[in-house]
Design a protein around this nucleic acid. Structure first.
Lengths: 243, 243
DNA sequence: CGCCAGGTTGATTTCGCTCAAGCAATGTGG
DNA sequence: CCACATTGCTTGAGCGAAATCAACCTGGCG
């Protein structure tokens, strides 16, 4: 672990390449120094667990590069992919502020670098810099809206429409536009996770994929998805909203 | 409106009967005075709309007595009951802090009294009293957990189990224990809303209710629900978790 | 080479949605 | 006070979608 883990010594988040998008933007010198002292940074292999549901909270994490999956589990093997987090996103602050154990597990979905801010550093930081609490507040409000949106979509859309919607979301983060105008997505998650995200089963996702392919909307090959025309996806969503 | 609406003049939230549970606990004298100046209080009839999705945000509301329903709508008549809010709960702070229009509609589910804190009062308050932002933060984290729980339950539980779970939640707020040990719930919402809360349709809720009655678990009559033995409900939930 | 996880496909059954009718409670205008 | 519309809820029949169970494929990997 030690060879993957730098501790303190660098100028930390103020010079972090994602600072503008992170919760550590706008710190004054003293606060930034505080942060730099406590901060550590570590590389995670794909699939490696950063913390697990039920663990005691040892502070918060902030994604530096790559992406991580936030997942909730139960004792019967059910798993729900709650969110994907990207550079600049802070995770684990819920349980820190609520004073509970972690309510979700987080793992890297590809080779990723994640920073860690220990409990007492963060506590001091919250005292010293009111902007931090405000950042967290805005972030948490965004998460509430996201969660409510998901609940609403699950209640109103068919599984097929939900999958199309999910593709539209993923194309932004994981999509690449090709010369011919089509888009290529490298899916960060398994079929099983896709299924949990739209509230259905693995097999059903497979069948929906089949239908999307015969409809010429999207072509799946393993974790590669080719979308000839993104407009068609949005049309598929709107046709419904307009009705 | 004026006869239902008091404005300023009273000692406001510091003496509010729910202050310990509200977001206005622990204000200093200056902040409390600020709050008292801006605050207004108004009575709403059952079903009356407090604000509507899409409205511009004019500040936040705080439930004083009664209960209110937070609801999201779309243009095709779909409605999802996101939450019920009770005395001490602040609503509408999402859109205030995010600077957006209201993302949900809120209406009284019975005769209710709701306070209103206008935009500029709240802005000043956030400046003057850091505890307010912290309260909001904790509240929003609670909402995130609730939303994630709902997503998880919808993904893993059958509609029947979800309804049982919902009854267990409602019995706490709306239940009354009778001498014979059974419980009586006065449902605050229609069947249609119950259905939206567990991700299904009105008719399906009716049928599940029928099954719960033949199973001797709960008896529905309009909005009255009689539950002979709450233990059986929890057993019904656990039988599943244990498997 | 065989194992294994992840994915697809098929057959069967269950479940919930839709459409439709009926019913009770409430409210409204004549 | 009664005919009538309206709203909320229940019930039924038919149908389509998805869950389940199971077999099978495929690409790594020891």
């Amino acid at each position: 672990m030690s060879d993957h883990c730098e501790r303190g010594g660098f100028v930390a988040c103020r010079l972090c390449h994602v600072v503008r998008r992170s919760d550590w933007d706008g710190l004054d010198d003293a606060a930034a120094a505080l942060l730099a002292r406590g901060l550590s940074r570590r590389e995670y292999a794909s699939g490696e667990v950063i913390f697990a549901q039920g663990d005691v909270n040892l502070g918060v994490h902030c994604v530096y590069t790559g992406a991580v999956a936030v997942r909730r589990l139960d004792d019967r093997g059910n798993s729900l992919l709650l969110a994907l987090a990207y550079p600049g996103d802070t995770i684990g602050y819920h349980s820190f502020l609520a004073g509970t154990e972690h309510t979700a597990s987080v793992e890297a979905v590809g080779p990723s670098v994640v920073c860690h801010i220990p409990r007492n550093t963060l506590a001091a930081l919250l005292e010293a810099a009111p902007s931090v609490a405000l950042h967290f507040l805005k972030r948490s409000i965004g998460e509430i809206e996201d969660a409510n949106d998901k609940l609403f979509l699950q209640a109103t859309l068919s599984h097929r429409h939900q999958l199309v919607h999910l593709l539209l979301v993923l194309v932004r983060r994981h999509g690449r536009r090709l010369e011919n105008g089509s888009h290529l997505i490298e899916l960060p998650v398994s079929r099983r996770d896709l299924a949990s995200m739209i509230g259905t089963r693995q097999e059903t996702v497979s069948r929906i994929i089949g239908r999307l392919e015969t409809a010429g909307i999207a072509y799946f090959s393993g974790r590669q998805v080719t979308i000839p025309n993104v407009e068609i996806l949005t049309a598929e969503m709107n046709q419904f909203a307009a009705a």
